[in-house]
Computed example of a mutant assay.
Amino acid sequence: MTGFLGQGILANWGGVTEVAETDYNAWHSLEHMPERMSVPGFLRGRRCIAVEGTPAHRRYFMMYETRTLETLESSPYLARLNDPTPWTQRILSEYIAPSRTICRVLGSAGRGVGGWIATFEFGEDKRDTATAFANGDWIDKIMHLDGILAAHALEGDPTTGQQPTKEKIFRESRDKDITVAVALLVEGMDRASVEAAIVALKNHLGALASDCITLYQTQHVLSDVDAHE
C-alpha cells in the first residue's frame, strides 16, 4: 500500500490568534500551499483543524510531503523562506506556539488521504523508546482496523531547518519554534474509526502514550499537480 509520496515531511502544529483565524485559513489555502507546491520537490500539502475542546496552541496541524529530506533545505525553498509576502508576514505574526519539525519517514502505509487524522507527538526525552516503537509492527496492526486508511511514523530532526530565515523571525514574534522527536499519524474515513484507533494505539504504546495526542479533521489537501493546473 502506498503511503506518503516522498521521504521528507515538514510537520507543523500550532494555533493562530482568534482575530486572524479566517484570514489564516484563506492565506493557507489560497497563497501558502500553492506557493509551497511551486518549490521543486514539494509533492503534497494539507491543513487540518482540531476537534472541539482542543487547546488553542494545537488547533491546526499542517504538513508537507517532499521528495527527499534535502528538499526542505534546498536553495529554492530557502529562497521562499527569506522572501515572505506581506500576507505571509501578517499571518505568521499571529501564530501561537508554533511547532515546526523537519522529519524523515520511518514507515508509511496507506490508501490516499483520510478525512480525519490523529497525531501522537513525543519529545526528546522519549526519542529512543518512541523510535524503537515507531520502527516496530504497529502500522500493520493499525491498518487492519475498520475505517483506517493510512498510518505513518516520523522521526524529527531538531537541527535541520533551523536557519534564521525571515519567515522564522515573523513566526517567532509571539512564541519560539519547538520541535518533536517522533510523531505517529493515523488517518481514517470518519471520526469514530480514528477515535477507535487512538484507543488501540494507546494500548500498544502503554506508558509511552502520555505525550500529546490530538484528533483533527482534514480541511484542505493540495498536490503539486493541483497547483500547476
Rank of each mutant, 00 (worst) to 15 (best):
M1N: 07
I9F: 01
A11Q: 11
E18H: 05
N25D: 15
N25L: 15
W27Y: 14
S29N: 14
L30F: 01
R36A: 09
G41T: 06
F42N: 11
H57I: 07
R59Y: 07
M62P: 00
M62V: 14
T66K: 07
T68A: 12
E70T: 08
S75L: 11
S75A: 14
S75E: 15
P76G: 04
Y77D: 06
Y77V: 04
L78P: 00
L81A: 11
L81R: 13
P86G: 11
W87M: 13
T88F: 00
Q89H: 01
R90A: 15
I91F: 04
L92M: 15
L92K: 03
E94L: 00
P98C: 10
S99Y: 00
S99L: 13
C103F: 07
C103Q: 08
F120M: 09
T131D: 10
T131G: 07
A132S: 13
F133E: 03
F133V: 10
A134L: 10
N135V: 06
W138Y: 12
D140P: 00
I142Q: 04
M143C: 08
M143R: 11
L145W: 00
L145Y: 00
G147M: 07
I148M: 06
L149F: 03
A150T: 01
E155I: 12
E155L: 10
E167A: 04
K168Q: 08
K176G: 12
K176W: 07
T179I: 05
T179Y: 01
A181D: 13
A183R: 11
L185M: 14
R191N: 06
R191F: 02
A196C: 01
I198Y: 08
I198T: 12
A200I: 00
L205C: 10
A209G: 01
D211K: 04
C212T: 15
Q217E: 15
Q219T: 13
V221F: 03
D224K: 01
E229P: 00
